[in-house]
Amino acid sequence: MSGELSSEDQLRLNVLLTQDIRAIRLEESRMELLALTDKGEASMPLHPTCRSDRYLRLVREALSGHALGSPGGYPVYLTRWTRHGQMESASLGKLLLTGEPEAVVAVVHSPALTDEIAAWAWWAMPSIENARLMLARPTVAQGKMGSVLADFLAEHLPFLQDDHLAIMDTIAVLIHSGCVSDETLAGIWKRGKRTNTYYVPFLEANWPGLGTMRPARGDATHLATVIPALQGPDRALALRLEQTLSGAGQAWIEALQEILARPETQEVVSRTLNAIGGFFSPDGGGCPSPVSCQACCSPGPVIWKR
């Protein structure tokens, strides 16, 4: 068994690596190396001299040696560390030159991710999870990649099927990104009729679109006439009640009843209960992150601030 790249591949790789490369992807089924350069996409067929999996490892080791100075290849066993967003290196883009999917995952989890690097990472590995993680970063959501990733997620949402946590996280990111139209969000909301998990992130975010869905409760007008005469804690409580009796509040409650009547998973229950506490508590509060995070299990985003 050979322990080296074929001379043809070695030569081509050396020429390729002298160019200004943004990212490298290995198409394992076709035994092809694709590179994203400043001039566009370049492809290089591989000529294995041994078993294909062994040869791909040799290619990745060569790429890693060039990009990171790490001849043993990218340390794929660092999965837990990189998934907690610990990768803050200034040379984040170099990880995309290793041809290693795990390195792309490390990049999309990094807090140092920029819109430009997100575009390269997206080319290297376009997956639903990567799109969601990148769109959750404000720098990406507000950049050129924001609408690209949001459109992809909105289109691929039905493919998540029974992955309720992924459904909630994806919709939460779409709402918070501000990259999708109200019509698209309304379309996603309607899917809650069939799978009530779809409602949860809308309730967590107290989505403004709820305001037009239900009429206010019959006695809301009467309450509004009483509030001006109130002061102190009574007034604060009455204002919260006023929000509850409004059209948006009534739509919120109705959706909540549907979820609690038939929740599918434990995550749906936990996030719904946190949303209730956040909605009715006087100060709101909790984790501002649009996606669920391991470090924080407090209620969802701040809502109802007057």
Partner: peptide, 12 residues
């Protein structure tokens, strides 16, 4: 409202 304000996943 007061009762619901105290609701969280801690209950489950």
């Amino acid at each position: 409202i007061k009762e619901l304000a105290a609701v969280s996943e801690q209950s489950v």
